[in-house]
Design a protein around this nucleic acid. Structure first.
Lengths: 230, 230, 230, 230
DNA sequence: CATGAATGAGAGTTCATTCAT
DNA sequence: GATGAATGAACTCTCATTCAT
């Protein structure tokens, strides 16, 4: 009996592991060789199963891609939630969130691409009423609202303001990811990105630009490169 | 001899015409049925030539796509240049350019996608040292610099500031084009976009937000919807 | 001991029930969606077992199909035997059997197809020396012989005559079932079938064509149950 | 110029030849190994082309099957028309047509199957308003009508009578082709078929049964070419 | 210069079946 | 006896591209 239960659990664990492995492999092919290279056969080869076997884990190819999106979204959302918890001060959180978003995109460009750029999973995202991004956007808007309430940001439509900020960060990283920055030498990317972010944020919050917030002991999850104003 | 020359000219003209027709057709398929539907055969069918024939006009499929990019870029650049000429005042030009960019994207989403989002032509863009966007970016930076010089914008790295603005407009329209705005009801798109643009621009130029510049007799190419903040 | 026996019996009963259920489901899929749709997986899904489980009830897919044939044959044979009992008069029985056969085919076209048209079960039918149809044919021949003896039919080889009649009824219904009657408008099917049957039967039994048996005021759709003269 | 024309003609001839070869091969596989074995790959292998190449000759697999049907129908129709011409006497023609039909079926069972039994081409036959069989049926009805007019057949609905005869011949050969004659030993097939045919025809035409036409010392396998009047 | 024909590679998917547990 | 998992072998079809004519 106990054995039975255990073996069921084991099976489930193994299934889950293989599922994850399939996604890992798919992600790795996607990263290394691009979307076109992600084929059922190719994945099957790499996980050392027959193509047909994958169909008991995912209904079709699209489902695999979509699972990749979900995975990435969870990662990003977790990041946002951790900032939400760690940083009660809305202005500080706003800056930190922006930086974290951009850093995530630059460190995981393929995941970012999947979530916010690629057309492949659009259909499924629409069907499934996919809403991890809802959540993220709502968090952002809440932060923006608090900032407005506390006078850190000019009072205005929070939707518009939140969308403006999201647009900026998305725009900057997606131009980079999709290599539309020929005008800027690659080694300057980081600096320009940083500079643009700071410029914009400071512009929106003129009275606060000299605040130490800006050179924050940025929550360590993020700290990759010091940003420092001044 | 003369006849020879003429017939050569005619031939060249005809070649050019077919080239254009191929691109028209490709663009039309792309617009109506999406990237996957753009196949050599499909194009050949519609121009009533054989697939092989296309290969004397374009080296391969990617070249066709790239030619589409070039075309679209010329269109967009012409728009920028016309603004450059029409609006000597840098601040006014800055606003107008931003609005024009966004409007272009929303009215020609497929062209925009090709130029700034799609991965297909990336390779060729890199190889050919594609620089229509360079030009556009340089124009923008020049405008930004002038704005700074004249005190409309806080002095800062012009590269960063220009990039910030571009990032914002690109981000907002590309989220829309690639349907990542589930958080916002579709009928509010225009308003939110507009609101975000105004919010950001005003935020960056606090002392000037009440200027009439903002509701400018926008060059008519653009005037689609009045924007006006008063 | 007794308990053991009972539980064995129960088990067997349950097995038999599942067997039947499998066949029900297979038949229902076959009827509703055609032969191609009848897959082991599909059946397994509908009986809520795993595909593998079916293999302890049937050796392979063909066996399932064959079992369907057997089932249908039993039904049809029972019909024949009931006529055999109910109608002692051979001529009456001959007409009634013919009509019953055709009616069966038209009311159960899928069963008919399985038994007499489809290639799928041929192999197994041959192997298993399938002989429900033997029985049916023998009954028919016996009836024909009696008719000849009693002067209702011209004396001739009974095998040939019986086969002639069977051929006719099979031909007419199978042309219909396999949709080879483009030459005849669908709404006339019933009439033409009926007319052809009467024509042929009357032709073979010229001296008896005026018998009431022949024009049995048969409800146009081929009277469902009793046919009876008398 | 002339050369040009010739080479075009040659090309067309070759195309036509390959088309025919594809059909030959398909037919041969169908004959030797059954419908399931007829796959694009298999055909391609045997004609020594790549699978893809076949798609410039036929739109899809169904078209190949359908072309097989068309081919067979032309053959059968030609046979009917030749009888139409050769035999002005309607009664003689009726017998001859019946025998020819059955002989065709027995000598070309796979073609017959395609035309009159198989489900595969049904869809296309319906779509294309396939009417070779119309023609055949009309010919038969005309013959029947003439026979009635001239008193060889009892006056009755010609549609019904024609359908009755067609049903009989179709029934007899299709029972054979689809191997539903377990009740009859294989070596007796020819005799029983012949006997049934004669029985039925004689039964329908009682006054003519002693005519030599009827028992034409037909070579047992159903004499191939001439049928012989007198 | 264009055609017609064909290649070759591979796409996603589906099946009946098997077998350890 | 049934499950869950996987196999292996197909399947049809589509594509960009090449090349003799």
């Amino acid at each position: 009996m106990a054995k039975n239960l255990k073996s069921i659990q084991r099976r489930e664990r193994e299934r889950e592991e293989l599922r994850e492995q399939i996604l890992d492999v798919a992600m790795s092919i996607l990263t290394k060789e691009g979307y076109e290279a992600v084929t059922i056969r190719r994945i099957a080869d790499e996980v050392e199963y027959t193509p047909g076997a994958l169909y008991s884990y995912f209904g079709d190819k699209e489902e695999i891609i979509f699972a990749l999106v979900v995975r990435a979204s969870k990662k990003l959302n977790a990041l946002f939630l951790s900032l939400e918890e760690a940083l009660p001060h809305p202005l500080e959180r706003l800056w930190a969130t922006g930086r974290a978003y951009m850093r995530f995109a630059m460190e995981h460009p393929v995941e970012y691409d999947l979530m916010f750029i690629m057309s492949a999973p659009i259909q499924k995202m629409a069907e499934c009423d996919f809403n991890e991004t809802h959540t993220a956007f709502r968090l952002l808007r809440k932060t923006v609202e608090e900032c407005m309430k506390q006078g850190f940001l000019p009072r205005a439509d929070a939707d518009a303001a939140a969308f403006a900020m999201w647009s900026f960060v998305h725009g900057s990283v997606s131009l980079m990811i999709r290599k539309r920055l020929a005008a800027i030498p690659e080694e300057k990317y980081d600096d320009v990105l940083q500079g643009a972010f700071n410029f914009l944020m400071n512009a929106m919050m003129p009275r606060h630009q000299e605040q130490p917030i800006i050179t924050p002991s940025a929550p360590k999850v993020l700290a990759k490169k010091k940003i420092g104003k001044k």
